[in-house]
Simulated scan of single mutants.
Amino acid sequence: MKGRNITQYGPGALLPAILLSACATTSASKAYLPAVDVPAMAETVPVGTANDDAADDPAIWRNAADPGASLIVGTDKKAGLYVYGLDGKVRDFVAAGALNNVGLREVTMADGSRRILVAASDRTDRAVPRIALFMLGGASGKLSSLGAVTFLPPGHAPAEAYGFCMGGPLRAGELARAYVVLKDGTVAEGALVEQGGSVAAMHLRDVKLATQSEGCVVDDAARTLYVAEEDIGIWKVPLDRETLGAEAFARVRDEDGLVDDVEGLAVARGADGKGWLVASSQGDNAYALFDLQTARLAGRFRIRGGAIDGTSDTDGIEIALGDFGPAFPEGLFAAQDGDNAPDAQNFKLLSWHAIRTALGLD
């Protein structure tokens, strides 16, 4: 942990004001920390909402039987949800309102069938946080809506469902765990369960960060949730404990490779168990990669070079390891591009092998 003191914050606890000021990054520190260039291998068709901040967050489904037929789900936070093939072409679009962050999981239903459950934070009503639910057809690439469920913690004031991520089930009878990050820094955890042939969400517990937060990701292997507090840094939340508590993981400062805002988070776990956490360092258009075993910064990269334009102002990111075909032999990294001018925003696709090689990772 680079010698940092680890402080835990339980439900309802806020960071001390002195820590907020100490962690703030000044404009002078945004001196473009060293980062290697990695080119995109492909890009998606732009989202339909033009001239606006619209594309936001991707999720990846790997087709183990036919890796080249894998799918990417991405949000247009002004309009709904897209499904793309690895060639970047649109396979489906569902007009579903203001869906911000998206996640997906393969789940086992009560009848024993395996389904692809897709869920997204629904900001259509800024006072009532909801989770929009879908099933994704792996062969068809089509989404079928299961509706939306309200997800406001008991006693919480009206709030906006901002960030979202999913994790594997932690108890019998669950399909998955869902984590909704409200804009005030509250992270609400719930269980997604099958109910009457559909999917319902049951609120379980919360953890509170002090300021605006959004990006989150679950490391299933370590049963740990990571959350990005935009101007402060990254927190880790062990999920095996009865009460959720946040521990400092990386801060907005040069030695941790992060420039505010800290946005999307993604975890890569190899077959050997080695894990990496990648964060969108939006303030300098880069991506910081951390070794999950040591919590040390392992390197930084930017998406640029090659025939496809690079990225800037990235919100959501995602990684999935494994064979995705010749262009992505070891894994796929997807990142939202906040400036795809003259076209609308879209998602850039990179080879994990290219990233790993550029950073000299084992």
Rank of each mutant, 00 (worst) to 15 (best):
G360R: 03
W276F: 08
T150A: 15
H203Y: 14
G48K: 10
A228V: 05
D52Q: 15
A327I: 03
R356E: 08
T224H: 06
R302G: 01
T211S: 13
A279R: 09
S144N: 01
V207P: 14
G264A: 01
G97K: 13
I18T: 07
S280N: 09
D284F: 08
P153V: 12
S281K: 01
D125S: 13
A69K: 14
G68A: 15
R304L: 10
Y179T: 00
T124P: 10
L359N: 14
E330T: 14
E106Y: 01
P329I: 05
A221C: 03
I308M: 03
A55M: 11
A279P: 00
V267M: 05
G97M: 14
A120N: 06
F249G: 02
S21L: 14
D125V: 07
D231I: 04
L86F: 07
N285K: 10
K142L: 02
A59P: 00
A248Y: 11
D53H: 12
G168L: 07
I317D: 02
V267N: 04
L182K: 07
I72H: 00
D87C: 01
L175V: 05
V199H: 04
A40F: 07
F324V: 10
G305P: 07
G233N: 05
M135A: 13
S27F: 13
I232C: 07
S140W: 05
L297G: 02
G325S: 12
A221V: 03
F151N: 08
D256W: 00
S21P: 00
I72Q: 00
T26L: 09
V181M: 06
L258F: 04
Q212M: 03
L86N: 09
G322M: 08
I303P: 09
A127Q: 15
T224L: 06
G306T: 04
G3I: 08
L81N: 11
T357N: 11
